[in-house]
Design a protein around this nucleic acid. Structure first.
Length: 491
RNA sequence: UCCUCGGUAGCUCAAUUGGCAGAGCGGUUGGCUGUUAACCAAUAGGUUGCAGGUUCGAGUCCUGCCCGAGGAGCCA
């Protein structure tokens, strides 16, 4: 071991002048305790040692920064904590791509000395090993993202063995079996970043308009709408069902707070197996007292535009990662085209649909509708028979319900469904009889029509379908961290 | 639940008319002074989803089952 003592601050420059077969181009310096110190830090004296001791992990050594903030630390010495995304080598240069959850940073180790201790660490590292890297942030056009880190020191926290997801191709079933690890990959990361932003936008939209968040129960004593199949569970000595909608409870909270929304998971035990369905999905449901169908359509329109604007401004990099053309979202403007069911059916039949009047719109119809406009299309005034029992009938055509479905562009299907609710007590009682629903379970719901009943409206928006549309993702299962699919509940 | 397609190395896929089980990636070893899913060379790696049948011989043909994918119905 040789000891060099310098009385100046520019010790690293001195090292550069001493370049030779036994020295690295970027000197790695250690203090007397064996801790790494920045090569251009102000030092009064230091050791140079050929093989460094195993370094204690020292969180105080340098400033811990996240990759997304790296540009602010140009020419500074920093610490990055993360995982090995990939590594490459070419002769005397080694590259480690370090992923820290906020981004991926290229780090470089450069030395003429093959026995350089950092090369040994490099060789040891495997994909997804956890590590702490310290070094100097440099601007370099060759680096992805424009910045890279010249490594001065590496602490390996754990070597990952046989990480199943390689940088090459995999099939979706395989990746879904490894969903807990798949989340680390770039595309999945981008989709879930958009999801988080969509959820934030939804909450900001409603909170900013004076809506109150009202959490509705997940365990419910009976079906909300009585249409779809519910998950059953035991509730002590009686049966309970997982919520398929918070809407009925929302009508109660709307009468207490005026404007409300609930936002939570919903559960459908339908044996649906399509790219648009999840068994467990998240839905936001606003409800407004004294509002009509038109008010609900206006609210849904503004909500969609708010989400799009937020995604376009805050998720640019994610859309780019997903190769999503932002123009398809930028061109969305209000008002959205509106069409009644009566108007839609002949048009759809003319375009080749086999549906009959009175049928609900199926997947082929949703695609045909989405071809009508670059905007979402609002279909209203459905036959009451194919809609939920609480739908308010049209004043002049009682066989039609004042409901609305928002059909997203690009065949993303129905992202919003809602409308005006029945506020007349007698009519609601009649509907409950017609739909063979147990009246005793709905006594509280009928109370809302006894004590200060008023017209009111609302809708439900599916978060995952909205995220699919924003991202241009084909299958809804990638828009939630851990999708629950038909018969599949792992991981 | 129904219709269609599929299951071969850790992963992605080949395998002619039924005739020796193959490649790329990943792993390992070596090489390369700026790589962008780096590249080059070498090397290890197999109960062909399971059970049965036909045949001299089955990844390949037949029967049953299991698992997966896409679509339909239902919905957000």
């Amino acid at each position: 071991m040789e000891i060099f003592i310098f009385g100046r601050d520019d010790a690293a420059d001195e090292f550069d002048r001493m370049k030779g077969p036994n020295f690295s181009h970027f000197p790695v310096l250690y203090n007397k305790k064996g801790n790494c110190i920045p090569s251009r830090a102000k030092v009064r004296s230091f050791f140079f040692i050929d093989l460094p001791p195993v370094l204690p992990y020292n969180f105080e050594a340098m400033k811990w920064v996240y990759v997304e903030d790296i540009a602010a630390y140009k020419d500074k010495d920093v610490e990055v904590r993360g995982w090995v995304y990939n590594k490459r080598s070419s002769g005397k240069v080694r590259f480690i791509l370090v992923r820290d959850g906020t981004g991926i940073l290229q780090t470089t180790i450069f030395s003429a000395d093959e026995s350089h201790p950092l090369f040994g660490k490099f060789d040891e590292l495997t994909q997804e090993s956890s590590l702490v890297v310290r070094g100097r942030v440099r601007e370099d056009k060759r680096a992805p993202g424009g910045f890279e880190l010249t490594v001065q020191d590496i602490d390996i926290l754990q070597i990952a063995r046989d990480y199943p997801i390689t940088p090459k191709e995999h099939t979706t079933p395989f990746l879904m079996e490894h969903r807990h690890l798949w989340l680390r990959s770039r595309k999945q990361h981008a989709v879930l970043q958009v999801r988080a932003e969509v959820i934030k936008a939804i909450r900001d939209f409603f909170d900013g308009r004076g809506f109150r968040l009202m959490d509705t129960p997940i365990l419910t004593p009976s079906a909300c709408e009585g249409t779809t199949t519910l998950f059953e569970t035991k509730y002590f000595d009686q049966m309970a069902y997982l919520s398929q909608s918070g809407q009925l409870y929302n009508e109660a909270t709307a009468a207490a707070f005026g404007k409300v929304y609930c936002f939570g998971p919903t559960f459908r035990a339908e044996k649906s197996k399509t790219r648009r369905h999840l068994i467990e999905f998240w839905m936001v449901e606003p409800e407004v007292a004294f509002a009509t169908l038109d008010d609900a359509i206006d609210l849904g329109t503004d909500l969609i535009l708010f989400i799009i604007e937020r995604v376009l401004t805050d998720c640019r990099a994610d859309l780019e990662e997903l190769e999503r053309d932002p123009k398809l979202l930028e061109r969305i403007t209000k008002p959205f085209p509106r069409m009644t069911y009566d108007e839609a059916v002949p048009q759809l039949q003319a375009k080749g649909s086999l549906m009959k009047y009175g049928d609900d719109l199926g997947a082929p119809e949703e695609t045909l509708i989405s071809e009508l406009s670059p905007n979402p299309v609002c279909i209203t005034h459905f036959p009451a028979k194919i809609k939920a029992f609480y739908m308010q009938p049209d004043a002049t055509r009682p066989d039609l319900a004042l409901g609305v479905d928002f059909m997203a562009p690009e065949s993303y299907g129905e992202i919003i469904g809602g409308g005006q609710r029945i506020h007349d007590l007698e009519l609601l009682e009649q509907r409950i009889r017609e739909y063979n629903l147990p009246r005793e379970a709905y006594e509280w719901y009928l109370d809302l029509r006894k004590y200060g009943s008023c017209p009111h409206a609302g809708f439900g928006m599916g978060v995952e379908r909205t995220v699919s549309w924003m991202c241009g993702i084909k299958h809804i299962r990638e828009t939630i961290p851990f999708p629950r699919l038909l018969y599949k509940i792992y991981p």
